[in-house]
Design a protein around this nucleic acid. Sequence first.
RNA 1: CGGGGUGUAGCGCAGUUGGCAGCGCACCGCGUUUGGGACGCGGGGGUCGGCGGUUCAAGUCCGCCCACCCCGACCA
Length: 477
Amino acid sequence: MSNEKLTSRSENYSEWYNQVIQRAEMADYAPVRGCMVVRPYGWALWENIQQSLDGMFKATGHVNAAFPLFIPMSFLEKEKEHVEGFSPELAIVTIGGGEKLEEPLVVRPTSETIIGHMYSKWIKSYRDLPLLINQWANVVRWEMRTRLFLRTLEFYWQEGHTAHATEKEAVEETLRMLEVYTRFAVDDAAVPVIPGRKSNTEKFAGAVHSYSIEAMMGDTKALQAGTSHLLGQNFAKAFNIQYLDVNNELQYCWTTSWGVSTRFIGAIIMTHGDDQGLIMPPRLAPIQVVIVPIYKNDEERSKVMPVVEKIRAELNNIRVKVDDRTEVTPGFKFNDWELRGVPLRLEIGPKDVEKGSVMAARRDIPGREGKSFLPQDNIHQSVSDLLVNIQSSLLKRATAFRDSHIFDAASYEELLIAVEKGWAYAWWCGEPGCEAKVKEDTKATTRCIPIEQPGGNGKCVVCGETAHEKVYFARAY
RNA sequence: CGGGGUGUAGCGCAGUUGGCAGCGCACCGCGUUUGGGACGCGGGGGUCGGCGGUUCAAGUCCGCCCACCCCGACCA
């Protein structure tokens, strides 16, 4: 661990990002190119994300299951767009047990195909529907360039796969899970996101429609933080997922899939972090409160530690860490836990023992301004209140930042300026040509066509033709 | 695959006209410290990316190879 200052976030955002992750011991690259080791502290955050999402999945009637890591190549080839979309980034096993395989096995880049294969066996009757299954898994996509959490060769995620009797139900499911992701991002991660539909060029290979939640990072670039796909009957037809309806007629199912990955950790880091390092939203923070005892000698220690233990015991259902390391100074610990993003720090020293107080320092407000004395009495209540307050102020701050970097673009000139400074919000006719022109001129792409629309019509910001929908253009990760 | 760059201690780097392999941080030991990144003294750690060449002598000069990073095309 280093005790040097971090690179400033405004000076070099990408260096800041890598430094924070490494110094906070969130993750490392493994010796193999592009693969990521998630360190215990990073994994603890992921576990909290898992727990939060899993609770919402259960509440909406989904159950967990597991499917194979290896998928026969022929499975992917059954859906034309799917294999075309994924073939450049597949890792393929050609040798097994020293023998060349009859048919290559693909290391799953996503599991629609193998799950579709199983669903065709499992689903026979309308009584089997809807089938609502989620899988927590790792997947592999052979990316050209990797970035910790955001784009790694292997990543961890959850992928939900559902089958329904009607299109209407599948559409409802797709939007329901988009809503679940939105609630998770906003309420638990304090990451404001815009739910919307992807353009045809940006959608998932094999989907009818893709939806996503889009977040703005601290450098104003956009990050797709979760996706929900309406697969229509594309996979049902490719894999023969059929059922007999009440009239004894054979019907194809309507399917969906949706996922959130370890990429979301990157979203949290880049949304909330500052020049001191990470800031964890209290609801997901691996450590919510760190207590730093302060003493000069054994005598002071013997007075301070019982108070520390008493406070720790009272904060029973809060994730508390007592940093009783003796080899580093309190000042070092302050910086260390700030780097790791612990939302609230309690300092307890001889003065607090005398006064019956503790010093509380909130992570979201740096320096003296974020410090206050709390009475030791009723500490559980005051700490809980502070955590709630920090959670909501993080969301408020991120939302204000995002909104001040979204610009209405009424003309192409305005769009060019807007995507330099943040996101452009503009009418778009839906033509891929207009989208491609923007990408060529600015590197910005359509992020999503938001669910909430202003209504009425406008003129496409690129070609001037009549447009029915407004869309966000932005540079993206 | 195209353009640019870098390989020297765990990490970050310096190394001049070729002449004993260095610095900061980290690590280990002892002591003093401890309310915002402590200090002193002592210590351990190297196939200088690899192979070959020039030379009395190569981290340094020459040739070939390898690896990695950044910018493009691709992407949750």
